[in-house]
């Protein structure tokens, strides 16, 4: 996997989070967690899942939707679907 692709995926992930949560890209970091900011509530969580599935062309299992509790966790989960970070 090239560094370029990894960087692209990281950028796509950041944009997907920022779009779904309606926050600045600069607020997206690995430690950002579900319910830790008011913008990442349950409604935004659903928008986020839809955005990530669309951007990375994957369909997440229910367990993974439940488990996606932070940006770092999103990277781990998406890695299972062949998306490298």
């Amino acid at each position: 996997m090239s560094n370029e692709l990894i960087q692209t995926n990281t950028a796509k992930l950041t944009t997907a989070f920022a779009t779904a949560l309606v926050v600045a890209d600069t607020q997206i970091h690995d430690d950002l967690a579900y319910n830790s900011i008011k913008e990442w509530d349950s409604t935004a969580h659903m928008l986020l899942i839809a955005e990530l599935e669309n951007v990375f062309n994957v369909m997440l299992d229910t367990d993974d939707i439940i488990d996606m509790s932070s940006v770092a966790k999103a990277k781990v989960i998406l890695s299972k679907y062949g998306v490298s970070f």
Partner: peptide, 9 residues
């Protein structure tokens, strides 16, 4: 309806 998309398996 909002949540229906995420009913899987």
């Amino acid at each position: 309806a909002k949540f229906a998309t995420f009913i899987r398996n």
